[in-house]
Nucleic acid binder design. Structure first.
Lengths: 230, 230
DNA sequence: CGGACTATTGAGACTCCTCAACTAACGTGG
DNA sequence: CCACGTTAGTTGAGGAGTCTCAATAGTCCG
């Protein structure tokens, strides 16, 4: 029914910064010609679930959150869109999720019709786009693996590890957490209180430290063991 | 970090049978020329997680299960591949999941190199492929919504509803369940015992009936309410 | 500086998991 | 064709973990 993607050993499926890194100048110009640059302030809504899906978006800097309001009143966070991420999944011509800026954000908005036109004319560009989608697919699978964890500590650890891999930094022990606890909670499907408690226990165990908007891995060995324990 | 796909209102993103329905004769011939037909018996392994990802596969008939063995000894079922589904997701040149035939299966195996070559030469075909991937992506999101449910009954109902939508049948109340309880359990992340109990309660409530390899929806109103309650 | 939101901590209830026993169904070989 | 062994499925009792509700401390922003 789902997932398990098609693709392709020989391909340059670089995870991060694909749009920025793998496109030729000509391709970048082609996209720039049909894209509109949009600046958004924190908390601004990009689009709402159910809106007509006229455009796709490329994050040019900042952090965007993608989520879904459930009938129960709960909120399901589908993921976080960092620089160079593409978002705007549609189904039946309507956006599947809502998206909102968490920080100040620069977006490139590309009308879907123009995008489809360009893709049909440029197989190479379309191929890069396909790679991007496949990469998103792998992220979704990773999220599913996180949700499969029973233990709250394990979910936190896998979440941090996911961010670490998605956004490698100079210091391999330091991980930015630019979103708040509730956003994390709704992403890994825990109550905010459970996130707090799990972080507290990881701190007591000497495995990690948590600060305002960041985490630090203190004991890499036990951290990696916890991540792999799934 | 994940999901939220790019794509495209104007596109014919028909969910089922895309490969069969949306390709031109010329495109089908092109694929047939590079594909190998493979017949598998029930329980046969298609490939194992970690194997070199040399090919992608199109299910030509029968049921395939995609799964991952976790370090804890548990098993995570990524999904079920029905006729016309494409599978064979690779990361770093290795398959991400293992796949196994649940029934007798016909597969079309396409070497990745040949596939990439064909895709680069035929933007239209590549576009269909992209649509297929996007469809898989939506399935993954649906699975995540199922996993977000707290109640076992709700997960079962959503799972059945997913199968119903994926494989529409003549009788809208009847749903085939060609996989066994353990496979279902590992897909919706419950213990097999919990699946049994949830089904028993759904039966007691008069909402559904369960037979050997099928389910029947008795009270559509309450069933739909349960599915939507997420 | 004040107010609202975020984060943490505590106590009790609920649900599912684990372990175990038992029944039913299947498939294989005599 | 039947008997037996193996696997799949159901049901029960107890325990572990998170969720909910509530109260408190901390933080950010106007």
């Amino acid at each position: 029914v789902n997932s398990d993607l098609p693709v392709v050993r020989a391909l340059p499926l670089a995870g991060v910064g694909l749009v920025r890194q793998l496109l030729t100048d000509a391709q970048r110009r082609k996209l720039a010609a049909i894209a509109t640059r949009v600046e958004l302030r924190p908390r601004a809504i990009v689009y709402r679930e159910g809106d007509p899906a006229d455009s796709i978006f490329i994050n040019g800097g900042g952090l965007v959150i993608s989520f879904k309001e459930l009938p129960s009143g709960r909120r399901r966070v589908a993921g976080f869109r960092f620089q160079a991420d593409i978002f705007g999944l549609a189904d039946q011509g309507r956006y599947v999720n809502s998206t909102r800026a968490l920080t100040a954000v620069t977006l490139y908005e590309i009308p879907i019709d123009a995008m489809a036109e360009v893709l049909k004319q440029d197989a190479e560009l379309e191929f890069q786009f396909l790679c991007k989608v496949v990469h998103e697919m792998r992220q979704a699978q990773r999220q599913i693996l996180i949700l499969a964890r029973r233990d709250a500590k394990g979910r936190i650890a896998m979440f941090v590890d996911m961010l670490r891999n998605a956004r490698p930094s100079d210091d391999p022990a330091a991980v930015d957490l630019p979103m708040n606890r509730s956003d994390i909670a709704d992403f890994i499907d825990l109550a905010p209180e459970s996130v707090s408690r799990a972080c507290a226990r990881l701190r007591q165990d000497g495995i990690m430290a948590f600060e305002r908007r960041a985490a630090r891995i203190l004991d890499h060995e036990r951290f990696d063991a916890l991540v792999a324990a799934g």
